[in-house]
Design a binder for these strands. Structure first.
Lengths: 135, 135
DNA sequence: TTCGGATATTTCCTATCGGAAGTATAGTGT
DNA sequence: ACACTATACTTCCGATAGGAAATATCCGAA
């Protein structure tokens, strides 16, 4: 799992929205970008992807912007990272869902180590939600 | 369902890869872009998204490029369109998975029409695969 | 007042840039 | 013949440009 800045920015934006969600209020990219220090045009792409994946809803125009489409407790870190960075496993030969052969497979003990890591990482990311990190 | 050129380009690229798969090992963005008339730098973004979603695999460097990660018969049009354009339903109030209230709901007969459309579209896109359209 | 149009605002979409990182091949010196 | 280096190639990543589409607000005319 290689955490790109894409994922980091996306998580930051979601946390910001979770913290500042008011009833039916939308928050603009500009506001989030300024608050979290994210290049606004880059963030725009990430927000659109998050919207397509149904984590966010939006409206255009004045007073437009983005809001969470579900409760912060229903958005896991795993989902977000998978969306932007692909698989969670450190290498494909230990991936549960997307197995492919890689060199380390020749050493079973080595493979075991990375499987343990995969299990820990995925369990941790799967059970931690935006709600857990917003306070 | 608003079919953007993103989705169209992505489908074109997948069909091209399906047609030319065992011939060459990996096929470059440049080759696909030229063959299908797609702006190469734009296609690059789409290919990366398709890779992250595990429809493609890739290698870098000389003789590098992209190849299908699964059989063409296992890639439905629905999956690809959802990835790039979000929900399939023509409007959210008739969406099975992502319901949200919209104005037409007030007229039940109207709603019925769009639900019928949704059913037909999703059934059609869900059961048509890249393999079906590659010949 | 009330309607309609102009204006401002913000998402949404297509497209491109520049460079880092990884991979294969060619060339060079011993 | 072999090791090492340079080079060419291609994905991968962060970032930005420009304009269309949608929405809210403001202002002037009747």
């Amino acid at each position: 799992m290689k955490l790109t800045t894409r994922s980091e920015y996306a998580l930051l934006a979601l946390v910001y929205l979770a913290r500042n969600q008011q009833a039916e209020g939308y928050i603009s990219i500009e506001t989030i970008a300024k608050a979290q220090g994210i290049p606004p045009k880059f963030l725009e792409q990430l927000m659109l992807a998050l919207k397509r994946a149904h984590f966010l809803r939006s409206t255009k125009g004045q007073h437009g912007g983005y809001a969470l489409a579900k409760d912060p407790s229903e958005i896991t870190l795993a989902e977000v990272i998978r969306l932007f960075d692909g698989a969670l496993a450190p290498t494909e030969s230990v991936s549960e869902n997307f197995y492919e052969s890689t060199p380390i497979e020749k050493e079973k003990k080595l493979t075991r180590v990375f499987k343990d890591i995969r299990d820990y990482v995925s369990q941790k990311l799967e059970k931690t939600t935006i709600a857990d990190v917003m306070k």
